[in-house]
Lab assay of single mutants.
Amino acid sequence: MAEAPPRRLGLGPPPGDAPRAELVALTAVQSEQGEAGGGGSPRRLGLLGSPLPPGAPLPGPGSGSGSACGQRSSAAHKRYRRLQNWVYNVLERPRGWAFVYHVFIFLLVFSCLVLSVLSTIQEHQELANECLLILEFVMIVVFGLEYIVRVWSAGCCCRYRGWQGRFRFARKPFCVIDFIVFVASVAVIAAGTQGNIFATSALRSMRFLQILRMVRMDRRGGTWKLLGSVVYAHSKELITAWYIGFLVLIFASFLVYLAEKDANSDFSSYADSLWWGTITLTTIGYGDKTPHTWLGRVLAAGFALLGISFFALPAGILGSGFALKVQEQHRQKHFEKRRMPAANLIQAAWRLYSTDMSRAYLTATWYYYDSILPSFRELALLFEHVQRARNGGLRPLEVRRAPVPDGAPSRYPPVATCHRPGSTSFCPGESSRMGIKDRIRMGSSQRRTGPSKQHLAPPTMPTSPSSEQVGEATSPTKVQKSWSFNDRTRFRASLRLKPRTSAEDAPSEEVA
């Protein structure tokens, strides 16, 4: 009796068929016929556990003709996506030579605008209408194809895939403007070719909807975003200037109206006075309405000098805001240009540092100066060695804690006790272990408590650290204090090793 083939788990290929790579489910599931010992083939499952149809090819690079078809379809799909992405970037994010197409579109729109203006002049109306009709045909074809291509290429973005995504893309403001202008152009052409009475009025009214094509030149909205950011950044200043200017306008108009309503027919109503105030304070000055009385002229002159300053403030605020924003954008561009080279330089330096163990090129690091100058660790070890030599091999803490019996001779020589300023008595072995921070803190506390006492003391002649007598400086308080830590004499004296002298005989010792 033939044995059933062993159940295979995992992703390994079956024996005897090495080139074939078959994806098997996580659990080997066989058909009921196979479990019962029949000759049925096992049921194939996909990666998600769903059964595959009987005629479906197995996924994998070596699955025969199905694999070749899959490779061809995958390559075609990649080319399709690449083309779609390229078209989308050309239309929505132009760079380099892609601006040539947008310059061509701008020339078409500008020519249409010029011809629309010439069509309103009686001398050039006939020729402009003929040229404009031909140009409209060209623009309908160009913009119609462009609109379709834009909607198709938007599928390269995830949020615009599918018919719902394309509809979302078509609802964008600039796409809506394109659609309105396209419909208006078709209506103008249809009305112009019919030759009816309505054609002339339709051409004159709907052609100027094509002015909206100038708005579509900035599809990404960079200028509007820049203007919005400047207004938002200086909103408080703008609101303040406009508010005060509006108050000056209504008060000036009302007072001039009261002064001129009886003697001047131009100011017969408050609305006429508001019109005069707006034209005057905005420095336009049509001259259609002028005050005639001396009181009205004085009020107009005073409020004009006051109001023009507030009406001119928004222009200066926006101008300075634009300058600052442009400078910030230039700085951001320079930062973006330098970020990648800086990151590459840091990575290269780290690779060199991690692979080169000698690091002989590091001549400006802490390790280099640590090898030249005595390190703080060596100074600490030197302090501890000196203290243990004086205390008979014991550390200062051990000397303080060691009990001394009554009447027993002390094995240590008597030492002079010292007192730290602002604290109780402490171990004499710690007097010379006072660090730089303690010395600086002690000097600052003395300056806070009594700076007036220092200038009363007789001035001391500054001497070099080499000429100081070591026996005289029994305490860190003898170090000359200065008002600034930048004094080199104080810094050098604080680094010197001060020996400890006994109370009975204080021989001067120098520590090399």
Rank of each mutant, 00 (worst) to 15 (best):
A2G: 07
E3Q: 05
A4P: 13
A4D: 08
P5L: 12
P6L: 04
R8C: 08
L9F: 05
G10S: 12
G10A: 06
G12D: 06
G12C: 03
P13L: 07
P13H: 09
D17H: 05
P19L: 10
P19H: 10
R20H: 07
A21T: 04
V24E: 05
L26V: 08
T27P: 04
T27S: 06
A28P: 11
A28S: 05
Q30E: 07
E32D: 07
E32Q: 05
E32G: 09
Q33R: 11
E35A: 04
G37D: 08
G37R: 11
G37V: 11
G37S: 05
G39A: 05
G40R: 08
S41P: 05
S41A: 08
S41Y: 08
S41T: 08
R43P: 07
R44G: 08
R44C: 07
L45H: 07
L45V: 10
L45F: 14
L48M: 06
G49V: 03
P51L: 11
P54A: 05
P54S: 14
A56P: 03
A56E: 13
P57T: 09
P59L: 12
P59A: 08
P61S: 12
P61Q: 04
P61L: 11
G62R: 08
S63P: 08
G64S: 11
S65T: 11
G66A: 08
C69R: 13
C69S: 11
R72P: 07
R72H: 05
R72G: 05
H77Q: 07
K78N: 14
Y80H: 05
N85T: 15
N85I: 11
V87I: 11
N89K: 13
N89T: 15
N89D: 15
N89I: 15
V90E: 04
V90G: 15
P94R: 00
R95C: 10
G96V: 02
G96C: 01
A98P: 06
A98T: 05
F99I: 05
F99L: 10
F99V: 09
F99C: 12
Y101D: 01
H102Q: 08
H102R: 03
H102N: 08
V103L: 03
F104C: 10
I105R: 00
F106C: 10
F106I: 04
L107W: 03
L107M: 06
L108R: 00
V109F: 10
F110I: 10
C112W: 00
C112Y: 06
L113P: 08
V114M: 03
V114L: 15
L115V: 11
L115R: 10
S116Y: 04
V117A: 12
S119C: 02
T120I: 03
T120P: 09
I121L: 09
I121F: 07
Q122H: 06
E123D: 08
Q125E: 05
E126K: 03
E126D: 06
L127I: 06
A128V: 05
L132H: 12
L132I: 15
L132V: 14
I134V: 04
I134M: 07
L135F: 15
F137I: 06
M139L: 15
M139R: 08
I140M: 12
I140F: 10
I140N: 03
V142G: 13
F143V: 12
F143Y: 09
G144A: 12
G144V: 08
G144S: 07
I148L: 02
I148V: 12
I148N: 03
R150L: 12
R150Q: 02
V151A: 03
V151L: 11
V151G: 02
S153F: 00
A154S: 11
A154D: 00
G155E: 02
C158F: 15
C158W: 15
Y160F: 03
Y160H: 02
R161Q: 14
G162E: 04
Q164K: 04
Q164H: 05
G165R: 01
G165V: 00
G165D: 00
R166H: 07
R168P: 00
A170T: 11
R171I: 15
K172R: 05
K172T: 13
P173L: 09
P173S: 07
F174Y: 12
I177V: 09
D178G: 03
F182Y: 07
V183L: 14
V183M: 04
A184S: 08
A184V: 07
A187S: 06
V188D: 10
V188I: 12
I189L: 02
Q194P: 03
I197L: 06
F198V: 10
A199G: 08
T200M: 03
T200R: 03
T200S: 08
A202S: 12
L203M: 05
S205T: 14
S205G: 12
F208V: 11
F208I: 14
F208S: 08
F208C: 07
L209Q: 09
I211L: 04
L212V: 15
R213L: 03
R213P: 02
R216S: 05
R219H: 03
R220G: 05
G222V: 01
T223A: 15
W224R: 00
W224C: 02
W224G: 00
L227M: 02
L227P: 00
L227Q: 01
G228S: 14
V230A: 03
Y232N: 07
Y232H: 11
A233G: 10
H234Y: 02
H234N: 11
E237G: 00
A241P: 00
W242R: 01
W242G: 15
Y243C: 01
I244L: 07
G245E: 05
F246V: 06
F246C: 02
L247Q: 01
V248E: 01
L249V: 06
L249I: 03
I250V: 08
F251L: 09
A252P: 00
A252T: 04
S253C: 10
F254S: 04
V256G: 00
Y257C: 01
Y257N: 02
L258V: 06
A259V: 11
K261E: 03
K261T: 09
N264I: 01
N264H: 02
N264K: 01
N264S: 02
D266A: 02
S268T: 04
S269Y: 01
A271T: 04
A271P: 02
D272G: 01
D272Y: 00
D272A: 03
L274P: 00
W275S: 00
W276R: 01
W276G: 01
W276S: 01
G277W: 00
G277R: 00
T278R: 00
T280K: 01
L281M: 07
T283I: 00
I284V: 07
I284L: 01
G285D: 00
Y286F: 00
G287S: 00
K289Q: 02
K289T: 09
T290S: 04
P291T: 00
H292R: 07
T293R: 00
L295P: 03
G302S: 15
F303Y: 02
A304G: 07
L305S: 00
G307C: 00
I308S: 06
I308T: 09
S309F: 00
S309A: 15
F310C: 02
F310I: 14
F310S: 03
F311Y: 04
A312P: 12
A312S: 10
L313V: 06
A315T: 14
G316C: 00
I317N: 01
L318I: 01
G319V: 01
S320Y: 01
G321A: 00
G321R: 00
F322V: 02
A323S: 15
A323D: 00
A323T: 01
L324V: 03
Q327K: 11
E328A: 02
E328Q: 07
Q329R: 13
Q329K: 01
H330P: 01
H330R: 10
H330D: 08
R331Q: 00
Q332E: 09
Q332L: 02
Q332P: 00
H334Q: 00
E336A: 02
K337M: 00
R338G: 00
R339W: 02
M340T: 11
M340I: 09
P341Q: 03
P341S: 03
A342E: 01
A343G: 08
I346F: 01
